[in-house]
Design a protein around this nucleic acid. Structure first.
Lengths: 234, 234
DNA sequence: CAGTGGTCTAGACCACAAG
DNA sequence: TTGTGGTCTAGACCACTGG
């Protein structure tokens, strides 16, 4: 844990606890320098984190203001949440049905997305994630076999991402595309939705630290159960 | 223009020009310090910008790698684009029909979103944006009157955001929620879509630098014409 | 004007990857 | 071990806000 992360954590707690109330200024950077006994650059970096989280906003000449407490809305998934399931679901019962688990050679589309050749096999996995016994997301995932040795149906039925973390795989980031679509036969069957219901589809490519794509997936969500939130700071 | 923005611009151009090819390392930070005659912190900040744009990725001990050229995909709107229309539409003919332009008192929902009281009037504007004579987005917008003096139907029929920039209004950021919905009567009428077609709805609150919300809007998009892309760097 | 945050420096030390 | 990027410092100057 770096100093600036540590300091950001403390200030965040103070904001959430109301110690620094909404629409007021937090102590200026010089005062924070004195409190934490660090350089101002370090304070600045800590505040930057909070600004990217949408908690505060800094203005030259004025100070740093606490914005309205942006708490998690309804069942929305933060766009920075890439494991597919919201952290807000912690504590709830999550059950995963593995509908398909296969190894096959990729078609051209998948080759392009995962930057691999036709001769490198991929896992093809379809999973239904249930939360509190209600269908939540239907995920269709492709991963290169050579990047994820030892993946199997048993692991898939729990959390693939926990497994990846265990074997020391580190992620660099993800590219997502979010759009609406008509529901298909498969959606009706598994998401338990009506033919007239739309779905929210999220396509993502997840990259490793070495810049290789490790996953291409499409997840389809009931339109009334899931949405995405994005926070832009300019 | 700060030094680090200037340097980021130059390095970005080199990457896009192929001078720093994909999947190769760019010169290390010490070399860049020598080339640009600045401190390493400044080089670091410049590289950070490119990393947030998804162009490069830095690893301790290794260097900074050029990632695959992430060019704009299909008709996707970048999530950091808050004016409602993609910059990729530049050069195309955009026509705006103002369907409703009213001033009224806000209901509770809008009061909450815009952080105002029931006695502060708001503009309520419904606009249809057409691109190349095809319906593109149906926007339903609320803005506090006191923040945007002099807004009228004529201005609304062009670009509200250009007007806001002209009168010197500065934005701090936006909160967006993206989800799918069934299409309504209004959608069928204006977006020229079928009753069975879903729509992609984006709700956003745009904040000013002084942290006041200036806009709450819902925009509804044909599911086959628009999507959102989000880039996460961890 | 005084006070704020934004940038920038020159140098230091550390964590990490690779040979 | 060497070279890389990540962090951190102490101080400086500047741009902007408000009175």
């Amino acid at each position: 844990m770096t100093k600036y992360e540590y300091i950001a954590d403390i200030i965040r707690k103070r904001i959430l606890a109301g110690e620094y109330p909404e629409n007021t200024l937090i102590p200026n950077q010089v005062e924070l320098v004195e409190e934490f006994q660090v350089s101002r650059m370090t304070i600045k970096k800590a505040i930057n984190i909070l600004m990217m989280e949408g908690l505060v906003y800094s203005q030259r000449g004025l100070g740093t203001t606490v914005l309205n407490n942006q708490l998690p809305e309804r069942s929305a998934t933060l766009a920075t949440d890439y494991s597919g399931l919201t952290k807000g679901l912690e504590g709830k019962e999550i059950k995963t049905d593995v509908i398909k688990f296969d190894v096959a050679f990729p078609d051209e589309f998948i080759q392009e997305k995962l930057k691999i050749t036709a001769h490198q096999p991929v896992y093809e996995i379809i999973r239904l994630r249930n939360v509190e016994n209600e269908p939540y997301t239907l995920e269709h995932t492709f991963m290169p076999v050579d990047l994820v040795p030892g993946l199997n149906e048993e692991i898939s039925s729990h959390s693939i991402y926990s497994y990846l973390e265990e074997i020391g795989i580190e992620f660099a980031g993800a590219h997502r595309n979010i759009h609406a679509d008509k529901s298909t036969e498969l959606d009706h069957q598994y998401l338990d939705c009506q033919p007239s219901d739309p779905v929210l589809e999220v396509e993502q490519v997840v990259y490793l630290k070495n810049s290789r794509p490790i996953e291409f997936s499409r997840s389809r969500n009931r339109y009334d159960k899931k949405s995405y939130t994005v926070l832009d700071v300019m």
